[in-house]
Amino acid sequence: MQILTTPFFGIFLSLIVYLVGQWLFKKTHGLFFFQPLFVAMVLGIIILVVLAKFLGQDVANLYNTAYRPGGDIIFWFLNPATIAFAIPLYKRNDIVKKYWAEILSGLLFGTVISLFAIVGVSKLIGLNQTGTASMLPQAATTAIALPISKAIGGNSSITAMACILNAVIIYALGGWLVRKFRLNDDPIGEGLGLGTAGHTVGSAFALKLGSVQGSMAAIAVVIIGAVVDLVVPIFSHLVL
């Protein structure tokens, strides 16, 4: 057990499951179900569950004592990685300067419309009040969404799950959605949508589609954070 509580285990596990994901993705010629991040997540959780059964421990406990020391080290590098998105944004400053009004109004109105739709879907599928409130701040990055979720009476674990799955879903289904709904016709909206729905991971995905998409996704991550900060508490007060 002591071998598992060093950071080496978490780092080792993360790398192995991600590499398996990459290998499967290549083997299946890019089948979305085998998207590396998705495979790594599912495989990693399965390994922890099996290991917990084997050691007779609680899964959450094993996650905290064994995986987290290493996982946190990798997780920390998301900080500089998020900062790095200023570069693609700066490289397409021309677009920002030309369309800043459309970007701002699009993100603001888009968020409000999305919030109504999300409340509708949550009620339709039968989430309780707490569950519905937890869904509202998910467009922001985790660090913004969690405190807002708590403030409006949501469950921050569910919100964290939403923020994480947002990224995984966009990475796995993004290509299909972009083709299906012809988002490519307008790279500015495409990039802003990917940044809003998929956060930093969505921005990396958008950057693969083009420099305009990448820069727009990066600016969406920043502005949506502020919009969620301001709009979601008011919205939940009025609607929920």
Binding site: G10, L13, S14, L15, V17, Y18, P36, L37, F38, A40, M41, G44, I45, L48, Y63, Y67, G71, D72, I74, F75, F77, L78, A81, T142, I164, A167, V168, Y171, T200, V201, A204
Partner: peptide
């Protein structure tokens, strides 16, 4: 970034 996000998923 795909890899850096693995700990969040797990």
């Amino acid at each position: 970034i795909g890899f850096l996000f693995v700990p969040s998923g797990i």
